[in-house]
Amino acid sequence: MDEVINRSSTIARELKTGSGAEVGMQVLKESQSSGTVGDIYVDDPRMTCRNVNVYYGDKQAIFDIDLDIAKHQVISMIGPSGCGKSTFLRCLNRMNDTIDICKVTGQIKMEGQDIYDGGLDVVPLRASVGMVFQKPNPFPKSIYDNIGYGPRIHGLNDNKDHLDEIVETSLKKAGLWEEVKDRLDHPGTGLSGGQQQRLCIARAIAVSPEVILMDEPCSALDPIATAKIEELIDELRENYTIAIVTHAMQQAARVSQRTAYFHLGKLIEVGETDQIFTAPRHRLTEDYITGRFG
C-alpha cells in the first residue's frame, strides 16, 4: 500500500517538474522491475542511477539498481557483506574500469551527463568524484606530496605557493593540519591509521571534487579515530556530496541523512535514515536492522 502511495507521489513530482507523462510512466515501469521499496528519487540530485547492472565475467553482482544521490547530503549504503554495496559505489566514479572482467550496464548520470557514455572522460570524472578506500592507502611519499599529488597531475596549481595553499586548506578541511603542519615532509605512511585515513580524505579534497565516495572508511580504525572521521564527514557535508558504504549500522545512523539497504546485489529499500532505522518497510531491511542476520 505504502509503495503505491510512494510511487504515485513520485509520478506527481515528475509531472510537476515537467519531465512529462511518458517519462513518468517509464519510471513507474522501471521501479516496478527493480522492486525497490521507498523513494529512490530526490529533488535535487547530484547523480542519478538507472537500471545499473554489474557483471564480473558471467556472474552478475548488481541487479537493476535505480537510485538518486542528493546534493550536500550523506547517503549511506548498508547491507550484509557481499551484497554489492561496494561494487555499486565503485561504479559511481568508474573505479570498476580497473578490473578487466567487470562490465557495467545501465545509466549513471551526473549533471545530465552519462558517465558511462563513450565520450566522457574518466580522468575529469574521477577528479570530480573522489574516493576514499577501506584501508588507508597513503602513497609512500611525504605528507605534502600525498596531498600535492592530485593537484600536480591535474595541473591545478599555478606555482609552489599556490600548491602550499591547496595543501594547507585541504589538510585544514580534513582536520589534520594542526597535527601535521610541522612535519609535512615526513612520509605519509608514518602517520597513525586514523590520521592516514584523514590524509586520504584531504588528498581527495585537494582536487576540489563535488562528490566523495567512501568505501567503509572506518573499518580499519579504532573507535576514537572512527569518531573523528564521522565528525569530519558531517562537516564535509556542507560542501560535498558524500556516499558512504558501511557495515556498521550505527555509523550509518550517525552520519547519513539517507540510507540505502542492499541485499544480494539488489537495492531493497531506500529512505530517510531515521525512517529506515525506526520503521523499515521491507522485511529484509527489518531483519537486518534488528540483527537477525548480517
Partner: peptide, 13 residues
C-alpha cells in the same frame, strides 16, 4: 592494489 586505487581514484592516468 590499494596504492593503484588511490591514484586512479584521484583521476590519475
Amino acid at each position: 592494489q590499494a596504492m593503484r586505487d588511490g591514484s586512479y581514484g584521484l583521476g590519475a592516468t
